[in-house]
């Protein structure tokens, strides 16, 4: 089982400096593989790098009539607009808090639920639970807001009815800065955890049953079984997902926040993407949004590089 999850460019070991002839021979041996990959690579050039070429408007004052190439350069002006904006620090903080909290709380829960599903003997029950917990993923946030209003409203919400029955004061969950972050984080976990288990379940199923049989013969306890077989078996996926999420650390869930937030909770709810939306929509700023996209990419690059290093060390230890 391999530990290396992402191969960011690293130095080629001296031992691999082999003759060009040998390299060509390896390449010829793999010709079918190159052939297979060619359509996808062409696809990447056209549909991923094509837009990135157009994304130079981040450094330009984009005018539709002049086109991407003809528009005048303005350098880092749009980046400056964003970084010097009044709420920049707060936007960054909110974005990172949401993004990290969803990862740190949501991912372990998904793994635990996946392991529980994998462990249970009750196959029908398992099918039922599996199917049910995926469902919330399909609710759009607009619908979610309706449901949350029914449950959380301080006027007649179900949860507040319970709080009041036990003598508490009703809480304005959706409009109180004290609770809003939890509302966002927990509703996201509620909606997405079940969907997240699919991946870990698939990973668990890819573990050879022989390992479990051997463990059973050795008389391993369930916890030992999970700790020494299941978890190491899905560790590469966990590490990979974590790393990829780090790369998108500044994506905190625009659709969710946009639907749930309101003016009273801007201070704890406004994120980079909602700001870009308001600023961009009002002022017709095509370039600004693209510039912020670049900014997010740079931060993602830094974080994914660091966490890849960390993971390489830690994951190795945990596997062996």
């Amino acid at each position: 089982m391999t530990t290396k999850v992402l191969a960011l460019p690293s130095k080629v070991p001296a031992a691999e400096k082999l003759s060009i002839k040998k390299l060509l021979r390896t390449m010829w041996r793999q010709r079918w593989l190159y052939f297979l990959m060619t359509p996808t690579l062409i696809y990447f050039v056209v549909f991923k790098y094509g837009p990135l070429w157009n994304a130079q408007i981040a450094f330009k004052d984009f005018k539709p009539l002049l086109g991407v190439w003809g528009s005048p350069w303005v350098g880092f002006e749009h980046f400056g607009t964003f970084i010097n904006s009044f709420y920049f620090t707060e936007l960054m903080a909110n974005t990172i808090i949401f993004s990290v909290a969803k990862l740190v709380l949501g991912l372990p829960l998904a793994v635990i639920v996946a392991i529980a599903l994998h462990e249970t003997w009750l196959l029908r029950f398992r099918t039922l639970v599996q199917t049910a917990i995926y469902l919330p993923h399909f609710l759009s946030w607009v619908i979610m807001f309706g449901v949350m209003l029914v449950i959380l409203s301080p006027g007649n919400g179900l949860l507040n009815a319970i709080i009041e029955r036990f003598g508490g004061e009703p809480i304005a969950f959706l409009t109180s800065p004290k609770y809003f972050r939890w509302v966002v984080i927990l509703s996201d976990i509620w909606k997405e955890t079940g969907w997240g288990t699919i991946l870990y379940l698939a990973a668990l199923l890819a573990i050879s049953p022989d390992l479990y049989e051997a463990a059973a013969v050795d008389g391993a306890t369930p916890l030992q079984r999970i700790w020494y077989i299941s978890l190491p078996g899905i560790l590469p996926v966990i590490v990979l997902v974590t790393l990829l999420r780090m790369g998108h650390i500044l994506e905190a869930g625009f659709n969710q926040i946009f639907v749930l937030y309101s003016i009273p909770v801007y201070s704890v709810g406004d994120i980079i993407d909602t700001w870009v939306y308001r600023q961009g929509v009002l002022n017709f700023q095509f370039s600004l949004a693209t510039a912020v996209g670049f900014f997010k990419g740079v931060i993602g690059l830094v974080l994914i590089t660091i966490s890849n290093r960390v993971a390489k060390r830690l994951a190795q230890q945990s596997i062996y």
Binding site: N54, A55, F62
Partner: peptide, 8 residues
Amino acid sequence: LFSPGLIP
């Protein structure tokens, strides 16, 4: 990492 966004 680098998403070009809507307009590009």
